[in-house]
Simulated scan of single mutants.
Amino acid sequence: MTALLSVDKVGFVQRGNLKGIKRANSFELSPISFELNSGETLAIVGENGSGKSLLGKLLVGAEKPTSGNIYLNGQKLSPHNLKQRCLNIRMIFQHSNESLNPGITVAKILEEPLILNTQLTSSERKQKIMKTLNTVGLVNDHMYFYRHMLSDGQRQRLALAKALILDPLVIVADEPFAALDPSVRSQTINLIMKLQMELGLGFIFISHNLGIVRHISDRALILRHGQLVEIGKTEVIFNWPKSEYTEKLVMSHQSLVSPKV
């Protein structure tokens, strides 16, 4: 069975050299390989500076890898055909405000990718927008709202709608819950899990929150300083970590959630 998404030895090198002097902004993401199946969630875990957000950008085409290839349903994704990637791999960002234009309505925010990537008529685009809003728990009247008129939870639902509007196969979410309060975070997590089950999406979740990682992911990939530490089923990694680094991460999480005596 062909994997939905295959990452084959994808790496990235950011050169920060100037006349032989190594600068602080140099970074190397060592070659990484993994597969993602339809309906599966893979968590990418690591501390700040581990390269997890960079890996997400490589997947959606926001950055170009210096080595390796990415395949979608067995077809190689070419860096010269960004439209194919834009249609099939969509991203949700941590801070929804930064990805939502404050000067246009919700309808315009959602219509823009449809205009750029589909042949839908104006009427068909409106129907698609209403359907997508309803899918993420918003109502038709939200089409006429501006960003500042929405709550934090509604903005994150809009960011999810923006990711879903083109009917992608894979969603890459970079710390999508970090800015939400606990109650809204729980509602959003449950919504994403529900939609994944209904739509069969492949979901890549980038986070350092091990509680959420354990709750929603099937497998986890651990990064440290641009290096792949280990990858495996989430419960196996939590219960039987192979590396000392992963063990420390798990113990740190457990110390936070375990009741104090």
Rank of each mutant, 00 (worst) to 15 (best):
M1S: 12
L4K: 08
L5T: 07
S6W: 00
K9M: 09
G11Q: 09
N17I: 12
L18H: 09
G20K: 04
G20S: 07
G20V: 07
K22A: 11
E28D: 11
P31D: 07
N37T: 08
E40S: 08
T41L: 14
I44D: 00
V45S: 01
E47Q: 13
S50H: 07
L54H: 03
L55Q: 08
V60E: 07
K64N: 11
T66K: 12
S67A: 11
S67D: 14
G68A: 13
I70E: 00
Y71T: 00
Y71D: 03
L72S: 08
L77D: 02
P79R: 03
K83Q: 13
K83L: 13
Q84M: 04
L87D: 06
N88H: 13
Q94V: 10
E98Q: 11
E98D: 06
L100M: 12
P102K: 06
T105D: 02
V106Q: 08
E112G: 06
I115L: 15
T118W: 08
Q119T: 14
Q119L: 05
T121H: 00
T121L: 00
S123H: 09
E124I: 06
Q127K: 13
I129T: 10
M130V: 11
T132S: 03
T132N: 08
T135S: 01
T135F: 09
L138Y: 08
D141A: 09
Q154E: 14
Q156F: 01
K162G: 10
K162Q: 15
K162I: 03
A163I: 04
I165M: 10
D167P: 09
P168H: 02
D174F: 07
P176F: 02
F177G: 03
P182S: 09
S183W: 07
V184D: 04
N190R: 12
K194Y: 08
I206N: 01
I216R: 06
S217R: 00
L221V: 11
I222V: 15
L228K: 15
G232Q: 03
I237R: 00
I237D: 04
F238W: 05
N239I: 03
P241C: 13
K242I: 06
E247Q: 15
L249S: 04
V250S: 01
S252M: 14
H253P: 10
H253G: 01
H253Q: 01
Q254M: 14
V257P: 00
P259V: 12
